[in-house]
């Protein structure tokens, strides 16, 4: 495995192997990644569900449609043949929607995007490019309650988060500024525990650059060095991730965190190494939730 996301790799040490099922498996890169993860002892022989058997799929079950694959994968979990469902080649929305119909995601569900900053040689995270389209303050609180213990588990230290908004002053017309200010104040009062410190509202320039923050008169010791970015909504978060991944060439993976934690999404296109880390992150999350 390449030396990306070291924090995630450390947390995967000594994990017990998990049983998994891959829904609509047609992707050779995923197969390669799973082979590596299996060799690392993190999973047992996966069950593959898909339209045709590929070399290396030892436990294969045929299904010609994406929807039927999702249902079969769901059944594997119900029958306790598998602990986790991996997204194969189906579209992410379809994959999630299939499982939403099955009542798999709860209100605390949050998609945590993970990036690797090559300059700082450090992993950082962002929420939420997928689940809550226009998050309310209540959504955000539930999301932070879900991810804070997990990030504490990953970093083994206090987590520093930037709540982003278009400006760093509070404007009632800009909901993001109000939400960010409230989250920051809640963290001051330790409402997310003592391990999460939220600063906000912060314009992204102040969050990413100490110089910019100083120029704007915003006091933030963590500018340029936050662990978590709380984006205003799904659109901004989705495009933040997309632009970093495709234009910034920043390694980008993710994990869907929820109280019910059976889904591992596929943030394709990924290199095999990135896919290995994404699966590893999912396994770390699964094990952590089970504790």
């Amino acid at each position: 495995m390449v030396n990306l996301y070291p924090e995630i790799r450390y947390r995967a040490e000594r994990l017990r192997p998990q049983r998994c099922v891959v829904s609509y498996a047609t992707d050779k890169a995923l197969l390669k990644a799973l082979t590596i993860v299996k060799k690392q002892g993190l999973i047992t022989e996966p069950i593959f569900i898909g339209p045709r058997k590929l070399s290396g799929m030892h436990n294969f079950r045929q299904s010609n449609s994406m929807y039927a694959s999702a249902l079969m994968a769901h059944e594997c979990c119900v029958r306790q043949e598998a602990d986790l469902i991996f997204q194969g080649h189906e579209k992410r929305q379809q994959f999630i929607a299939s499982h939403l119909d099955g009542g798999f995601l709860d209100k605390r569900a949050v998609y945590l995007a993970a990036f690797y900053d090559r300059n700082r040689k450090q992993t950082f995270f962002a929420i939420d490019p997928l689940v809550a389209t226009a998050p309310t303050l209540e959504n955000r609180i539930k999301q932070l309650e879900t991810i804070t213990p997990f990030l504490k588990h990953i970093f083994k230290r206090k987590i520093y988060a930037a709540a982003l908004a278009p400006i760093e002053t509070i404007n009632p017309k800009l909901t993001a500024t109000v939400t960010a200010a409230l989250l920051a104040q809640m963290s001051v009062r330790h409402q997310f525990g003592k391990f999460l410190q939220v600063t906000g509202p912060l314009d992204i320039d102040c969050a990413l650059s100490k110089v910019a923050a100083q120029r704007k008169g915003v006091e933030s010791k963590k500018s340029g060095n936050f662990d978590l970015y709380i984006l205003p909504d799904t659109n901004s978060s989705y495009f933040f991730s997309t632009f970093l991944k495709y234009i910034g060439k920043v390694p980008t993976i993710g994990v869907l965190l929820a109280a019910d934690r059976h889904l591992l999404l596929n943030s394709a296109p990924l290199t095999v190494s990135e896919r290995v880390v994404e699966i590893t992150l999912g396994l770390v999350a699964y094990n952590f939730s089970g504790k």
């Binding site: 909504d233 659109n235 632009f243």
Partner: peptide, 25 residues
């Protein structure tokens, strides 16, 4: 990349426009 990208809203436009603080290219 298209020559013109229309942003969905200010939240997105503001975040994306200043990504040069992270993406040095």
């Amino acid at each position: 990349l298209p020559h013109i990208m229309l942003m969905p809203d200010l939240n997105t436009g503001n975040v994306i426009a200043k990504l040069d603080f992270f993406i040095k290219e």
